[in-house]
Simulated scan of single mutants.
Amino acid sequence: MKYFAKTLLVFTILSSSVMVYGQGGETYVTTGGEWIFSFGGSGDDGAVRFSPVVNFQINVNKDVSDKFGFYSGLAIRNVGFIWDDPDSAQIRKKFRTYNLGIPVGLKFGDMNGMMLFGGYELEIPFNYKEKTFVNEKKEDKFNVYFSGRVPPVYHALFAGVQFYSGISLKFKYYLTNFHDQSYTEVVNGVSVMPYKNLDSNVFYLSLNFNLFRNTDFHYKKIDRDLKQVSMR
Rank of each mutant, 00 (worst) to 15 (best):
F37H: 09
F39K: 13
T30D: 12
G43H: 03
V54R: 11
N59T: 13
G46S: 12
A47V: 06
G46I: 02
D45N: 10
S65Q: 03
N55L: 01
S38N: 04
D45C: 05
F56N: 12
P52S: 07
G41T: 01
N55R: 01
V54W: 14
V48M: 10
T31V: 13
S42L: 15
V48K: 05
N59Q: 13
T31D: 10
N55V: 01
Q57E: 12
W35D: 06
K62C: 07
P52D: 05
V54D: 09
F39H: 15
W35T: 09
S51W: 02
G33I: 01
F37T: 03
V60P: 03
D44R: 04
K62F: 08
F50S: 10
Q57H: 13
I36D: 04
G33F: 01
F39T: 14
D63H: 05
G40A: 02
G46T: 09
F50T: 09
I58P: 01
V48R: 05
V54F: 12
G33P: 02
P52V: 07
G43T: 02
F37L: 11
V53Q: 08
G40I: 00
V60A: 09
V60I: 11
V60N: 09
V54K: 09
V54M: 11
G43L: 00
V53M: 14
Q57A: 09
Q57M: 09
V29Y: 06
V54E: 10
G46N: 14
K62G: 10
P52H: 04
V29F: 10
